[in-house]
Nucleic acid binder design. Structure first.
Length: 912
RNA sequence: GCCGCCAUGGCGAAAUGGCAGACGCAGCGGACUUAAAAUCCGCUUCCCAGAAAUGGGAGUACCGGUUCGAGUCCGGUUGGCGGCACCA
């Protein structure tokens, strides 16, 4: 706290006075109101007085009687280009909610921080040829300065930075927790690896390492030569890197993986209880890709030569009901049984095909997807239900990473199999018909079908399944397979494990060392593992990470070396929200009390059983681009932390709202090349931060995409100036002073009604996050007051308080002027003289009731007349008045009404 | 291809199944001013008639349905946006 600044709540009249003189009349343009003076003034005041500091339980000043509200923004990564007008959109929305909740008596946590590791930060550093730490620091101060100019109510004492060693320490600590955990399929939860060892005393070290949630795998991964690193599936779009749009190829490499797939079921099921947009839930469900089906075992027909018996081949299918129509089988080219089954005469062709597949990039595979390719292995499998010998092929349309890497092909009822069978002349058997078979049992048709029918229907040509619906046939065949041990009902997910290592410099080092070809965790006491100083931190262009260049750092001890990969950008953002609860703790990633309070509203031990009203972050606002990245990763980490007893809720973010994209003035997406980028600094310079905030909220619904409009900013700026002049006027010396028409008088009934209508509407609209219509309501009240010859302080104070979450600087200044002269004219006097500390007003319904209402009169649904009557008039009376109207009589033109519909106090409809 | 979302004036948008277009922008007219800017007041969905007050008609992408009554609910079509995409 600054010693030169008085405490606001002790000496309310000592708000620093700043005179704002009207500029010289000859200067180019006069400002409609002195935003350029009052905005910095109040920002400094709030900062000096720690007006928005949030206290943790146990801290002096913490008020346990208030409910908590945790409102979160998706923290930005501080790029070199500075803030974009898209950033303040979501940030203003949360700021309004945050200020509103404070005024409604909540302990609010509204923090901000920096997602400063990762590719964009590193690429910017490479471009400007500086160390990423230096550019990151510069970019952060630039971003922070820009955000401070907008007047958000962040508690800056809780600022976090993912690259700070004090933060990295705990990111590494959580990685260690993942490394130290396994997934118990029976309990469906993560448990300490020591439990696994206790339950499996005979387990080898390899077996133990194979069940960890963080594990090393040698597998084909997305290698991006342009970025010099591997990428997660979520970061690859149409065969190119999401960042930079470089081609990505598949390469088998040894990489760290996180076992997110173990949580697939919970990640889908627990979406149900979240208050998120359906579209985001759907994206996550689709990405996780749950499919119900069956695994079916096919025996391999023994070759005549009679070598060693080959193992059975297991396939996954969502259509076990079509098993009788399986006329061939396809293995993925990488399938381990390919070598075992291929007959000598096909070896060469198979080997050539496999080499061809391996060299194809993802991009090429996608482009070539139109034309199916494949080759026979010469081997045959036996269909378990009808003992039919079916040929085994390999083809790259079957993916090793999904299901079992092998399929039974049913060309009559699967588009892909149809295409393949048609091209290679493989047999096609129809086993599903669109209509039920005629009673009496006509002979089934054995002619090959002329087209593929993928939909449901009735089983045909399928022995004991004949006549059953697809649904019943699935159940019947699955039960039969299970009885005979030939298969089982199975659920398969599209989700793959999270590829977690990157060959880059600017990321968290893994807390891992290697000894004798085996990995082990760095002791907790040695965290954080800091990045080495490197003169050249650029990617090597090969899969060898840049950290390997720092030989001293790599060498951990005699015979032990450090892991040289770094973590992806998503690591820090997967838990940063938890750190806000207790950002300076050096003993724990977050203290249990702080975590429990801000995430559940109660302290550990106090928590009651059953559903909690405030489970997790109460409101999270951000863009849709993280639907399957950050939002999925953070849920995964949170569940591991929950299972391991480190956090109190199973889900991190209870309510999620997506803000829409702000487009350029031309309706196009803002981009440098189109020259339609709007810089918030320019807007603030010309119109002030309050105008920027107000316009971003007034443009349209928060969730919608909407184009920028400079004249629109002018419009809201004019509104703010009008609100200013309701209360302020220029004196002879050209200073802004309290207007003489502002008086401590009783408001007229009309003004009272307008005031309370505004309270009602603004309150409901903020609750619904309908900020554009809330602002309309503020404009309506302002327009109402503009017409009044004297202006009652009570109504003006209400207006100022209602405006304060939206335009806090203007409100604060006007409040200080009104409060200085009149005190608090309405309601209970507050302990504080700040607008942002006032109690949120409540509307009084009695001011809104009207004694007269306008009744709409329709004839055959068309508006014909309106009458004004006393409220609460009986239906029969309304009917009589309606029929008495000459216009109605005209419209009826002598006909007899069939019926008259009357809605009391609203409408009469005469039906002809 | 599959899944989802959206469609209202010149523009951004409002409308618990009950007066379509609140509020703002742009535009037009007026007041103030030597003038301009700023500000204030009024008009402003479209078409027809009228000097005007005003009157009449049409209208929420298109076709159909439910209802006394549909921008809103249901079915279909078209167009746009987003996600997934050989996932068996």
């Amino acid at each position: 706290m600054s010693p030169s600044s008085p405490r606001p709540d002790r000496r309310p009249n000592r708000v620093p006075f700043v005179a704002y003189y009207i500029e010289d009349m000859t200067s180019e343009r006069r400002k409609p109101y002195p935003y350029d003076i009052i905005e910095p003034k109040w920002q400094q005041y709030w900062a000096a007085h720690e007006t928005f500091r949030s206290r943790n339980p146990g801290e002096p000043g913490f008020d346990a009687s208030k409910p908590k509200f945790f409102v979160l923004d998706m923290f930005p990564y501080p790029s070199g280009t500075g803030l974009h007008v898209g950033h303040p959109e979501g940030y203003t929305a949360t700021d309004i909610v945050s200020r509103y909740k404070r005024m409604n008596g909540f302990n609010v946590l509204h923090p901000m921080g920096w997602d400063a590791f990762g590719l964009p930060a590193e690429q910017y550093a490479i471009k400007t040829n500086q160390h990423p730490r230096v550019t990151t620091e510069q970019n952060i101060s630039h971003f922070r300065g820009q955000l401070e100019r907008i007047g958000f109510d962040y508690d800056w004492s809780r600022e976090v930075n993912t690259t700070d060693p004090g933060f990295v320490k705990w990111t590494q600590w959580i990685f260690r927790l993942l490394y130290d955990s396994w997934f118990d399929p029976t309990a469906q939860k993560a448990r300490p690896i020591s439990d696994y060892v206790a339950a499996h005393p005979e387990a080898s070290r390899d077996e133990i390492d194979a069940v960890r949630l963080a594990y090393v795998a040698f597998a084909p991964v997305n290698w991006c030569p342009g970025l010099g690193t591997v990428l997660a599936n979520e970061e690859v779009i149409d065969g190119r890197s999401e960042v930079g749009k470089f081609p990505v190829e598949r390469r088998p490499m040894k990489q760290w993986m996180l076992r997110i797939t173990a949580f697939a079921e919970r990640l889908i099921d627990e979406l149900a209880g979240l208050d998120w947009p359906e579209s985001i839930k759907l994206s996550q469900r689709n990405w996780i890709g749950r499919s119900e089906g069956a695994r079916v075992r096919f025996a391999v027909a023994q070759p005549a030569a009679g070598d060693a018996p080959a193992e059975d081949i297991e396939v996954f299918t969502t259509r076990p009901d079509t098993l009788f129509g399986a006329s061939y089988m396809v293995l993925a080219p990488e399938h381990p049984l390919v070598d075992r089954v291929t007959t000598p005469e096909w070896r060469e062709a198979v080997a050539a095909y496999r080499v061809g597949c391996a060299s194809k990039s993802d991009l090429e595979r996608t482009e070539l997807a139109k034309e199916k390719t494949g080759v026979s292995t010469g081997a045959f499998a036996v269909n378990p239900v009808n003992a039919q010998r079916i040929p085994i092929w390999i083809a790259d349309y079957v993916l090793m990473g999904y299901g079992t890497g092998a399929i039974m092909a049913v060309p009559a009822h699967d588009e892909r199999d149809w295409e393949f069978a048609t091209k290679f002349g493989l047999p096609i058997t129809q086993v599903v018909a669109p209509f039920p078979p005629v009673a009496g049992g006509e002979a089934p048709c054995h002619l090959p079908p002329v087209e593929c029918t993928a939909g449901d229907g009735y089983a045909v040509n399928s022995d004991f399944l004949n006549g059953l619906t697809t649904r019943d046939a699935k159940a019947t065949i699955t039960a039969r397979l299970e009885e005979r041990g030939l298969g089982a009902k199975t659920i398969t997910y599209k989700l793959r494990d999270w590829l977690f290592s990157r060959q880059r410099y600017w990321g968290e080092p893994f807390p891992i060392i290697w000894r004798d070809g085996r990995h082990e965790a760095v002791p907790e006491s040695e965290l954080p593992v800091r990045l080495p100083e490197l003169a050249d931190f650029r990617p090597t262009g090969t899969p060898e990470p840049p950290l390997s260049k720092s030989l001293d750092w790599v060498r951990y001890s005699e015979g032990a070396v450090r892991e040289v990969n770094t973590m992806p950008q998503w690591a820090g953002s997967s838990w940063y929200y938890l750190r806000y609860c207790d950002p300076r703790n050096s003993e724990r990633f977050v203290a249990a009390e702080a975590e429990s309070y801000w995430m559940t509203g109660s302290l550990p031990g106090q928590a009651t059983a059953g559903p909690r009203p405030h489970a997790g972050v109460d409101l999270y606002v951000g863009g849709t681009e993280h639907a399957v990245l950050h939002l999925l990763y953070a849920r995964f980490w949170h569940k591991v932390l929950f299972d391991r007893g480190c956090v109190s809720t199973p889900e991190p973010f209870q309510r999620l709202v997506n803000q829409g994209l702000i487009l350029g003035e031309n309706g196009q997406k803002m981009s440098k090349s189109l020259g339609n980028v709007v810089n918030p600094d320019d807007v603030i310079n010309e119109f002030g931060a309050d105008s920027l905030r107000l316009f971003e909220m007034f443009m349209g619904p928060l969730q919608d995409a909407k184009p920028w409009s400079t004249t629109g900013v002018q419009g809201v700026h004019r509104f703010l100036a009008r609100a200013w002049r309701l209360i302020m006027e220029e004196n002879a010396a050209g200073e802004w002073v309290l207007s003489a028409v502002v008086q401590d008088i009783t408001p007229s009934p009309a003004l009272r009604r307008a005031e309370h209508a505004a309270i009602k509407k603004v309150t409901a609209d903020i609750e619904a996050m309908a900020f554009n219509t809330a602002i309309s309501a503020l404009m309506v009240l302002t327009n109402e007051l503009t017409g009044a010859s004297t202006r009652p302080v009570a109504v003006l104070q209400t207006l100022v308080v209602l405006v304060s979450p939206f335009a806090p600087h203007l409100a604060e200044e006007l409040w200080s002027v009104l409060h200085g002269k009149f005190g608090r004219a309405t309601g209970v006097d507050s302990a504080s003289n700040l607008a942002c500390r006032q109690e949120w007003p409540r509307h009084d319904e009695s001011f809104l009731v009207e004694d007269e209402v306008e009744i709409v009169i329709q004839v055959a649904g068309k508006l014909k007349d309106k009458i004004t009557v006393k409220k609460g008039l009986a239906t029969s009376e309304l009917e009589r008045l309606a029929l008495a109207s000459p216009k109605v009589a005209d419209a009826i033109a002598g006909r007899t009404p069939k019926k008259v519909v009357t809605v009391p106090d609203k409408l009469v409809n005469v039906v002809l």
